[in-house]
Each structure stands twice: as C-alpha cells, then as structure tokens.
Amino acid sequence: MPGPKDLDPSVSPRALLGAELRHAREKAGLSQDALGQALFVSGSFIGQMESGTRRIQPDMARKLDEILDTKGFFERNCKAANKSKHPDHFADAAEAERIATAIRQYASQLIPGLLQTKAYAEAVFRAYHPTAPDEVIEDLVAARLERAHILDDPTTPLLWAILDEAVLRREVGGNAVMAEALRRVTHLARKHRIIVQVLPFGAGAHASMEGPLKLMEFDDAPPLSFIEGPSMGMLLDDPATVTRHTLMFNLLQAAALSPTESLALIESVAQDYEHGEQHP
C-alpha cells in the first residue's frame, strides 16, 4: 500500500506533519505511550510532535517510518516542516508559545521578546551580531515582532512576566529606546492584557539566580518549561522538572513587588529615561 502523499509546504507544514503522525500512529494501533516507548521518548513527547509543538528531527523521522511503515514519508517531509524564522535553538519554543494558553516568564536581563519594541529588538540583535548585514538584523527583528501578535487576542494566552530590576536598569539602545520599551510594557499592563511584576535588587538571592525561565501551559497537552543560554535552549517536558520550575516561578512571584507596585516602578523608570536621567 502506498504511503501518504508529500505535504504542501505552503500549508502549515508542521501542523500537517503532526496530523499525519497522529493518523499513522492510530492506524498502526499504537498509543502515544507505546510509540514513545519504541522511540525511547515519553508519550507526551509524541503528543507534542503530533500537535506541532516539537519538530520531527531527521533521525526521529527515519525511526517513525520504520515503525509505522510509512514508506519514507516522515523523512522526506520533516525538512520542510522544520523550517522556521527563528534560531534553531528557539524554534520549538516559539511554536509552543504560539499555541500556549498561559505563559509565565522570569526575565533576568532583557525585556521578554513578546513585549519588545522594534527599536529595542534591533539594539538587542545588533549587540548579539555586531558584524551582521542590516538585512539579517531586519529579518530577526521581523520574526520577533511577528511573535508578539499572539497578544492581539484580548485574553489568550495569559502572560505573566516577572522582570528582574536589572531589566529596567540596563540601558539597551539609549534613553529614548528604553523609555519606549518600558512604556509598551506598562501600556499592556494597564490594558489588563498582561500581568507584570518586578523582582527588586533588594530581594537578594532568589530561586532563579542561574538565569531566565519560561513555563507554558496548553489545553490538550502537558505543560512545558524552557530554559536558555547563549545560542542554546532546551524545551523540557519531564514532569518533575516542570514541577520544580513551577515552584521556582512561584517563589519569584512571592519575592517580587506586587503588580501595582511594579507598574509604578516601571513607569517611574520610564519617566526618568524620558528625562535623560541615568540609572545605576
């Protein structure tokens, strides 16, 4: 029997590939857990590939074709489905972010990407890539701003951001850029589109001293956490790890200023930037 036809890359290839995986798995009479055991991954990992949250990598695609007898379909099509406007280490997280119902994020150094302005994002990417051509920076900025469209929906996802005070004090792009960037954060908070807290320097040592943290929840899939470093990132679904990261975020919430106090501080710092004042 011939395998399924190749995908049309112009029509949500990752979602289509995930749907084909679900169809092939069910046709083979396998549960997500059973297929996961054969591939040495969790059942939730299979579910994430089926939903398009995780990309199907070439080595995994070859194994799927063997187990599901799909005549090389997944190996042929995974390349098109894996195309992303985002850096490779962030592509899966960006896709997960797009379908999440709730995002809880601690930002240790930078305004979160979903909340950045064009000028702020340009300054960040130029710092990352000081010798890159302008068109490369423009593409990176465009992809980052496109991500922010998930906030066009008035209620979903819930976005709860905890900003380290360093995020407010680190001058990225100059006074005008910082003032605009912080005003965007306060605008979204005042519209009740996001919840924002500031973790002040006075809080001292805290639960996420080692770096930023992002948690994502979904309607029909287990929660994920995402941790990142220089040019690397890990999307994690291990329940014990996600539970620990959730506790870390809860501890950060408890140590941070209240949303009302945080908003007042961010607006005060934005006003200082507008007046050209420097910050320690």
Rank of each mutant, 00 (worst) to 15 (best):
M178Y: 01
A166W: 05
T155K: 14
A143H: 08
P222Y: 01
A166P: 04
S225C: 14
L151E: 05
R147P: 07
A166S: 12
D219W: 10
D152Y: 02
A161Q: 06
F201V: 07
E228T: 14
L159D: 00
D164H: 12
A148S: 13
S231D: 14
L215H: 10
D220E: 15
T155L: 14
D152M: 06
V167I: 04
H187V: 02
E180D: 14
A203D: 10
I194E: 04
R184H: 10
G202E: 15
P200Q: 09
P200T: 08
V196W: 05
T186D: 03
E217I: 01
G173K: 04
D152Q: 12
W160P: 02
L159K: 01
A207S: 13
Q197K: 11
A166K: 03
L163V: 03
G229P: 09
I227Q: 14
A166H: 07
L215K: 11
L182S: 06
K191H: 05
A207G: 09
E210L: 11
L213K: 11
L168H: 07
T186H: 07
V172N: 05
E180L: 02
D164I: 01
R147E: 02
P157Y: 05
R184G: 01
P222K: 09
V198H: 08
L163E: 04
I150F: 02
M209G: 14
M209S: 15
E210S: 12
V177R: 07
T155Y: 13
H192P: 00
W160Q: 06
H149A: 01
Q197F: 10
R183L: 02
L151F: 03
R144N: 00
R144K: 11
L168D: 04
L213P: 11
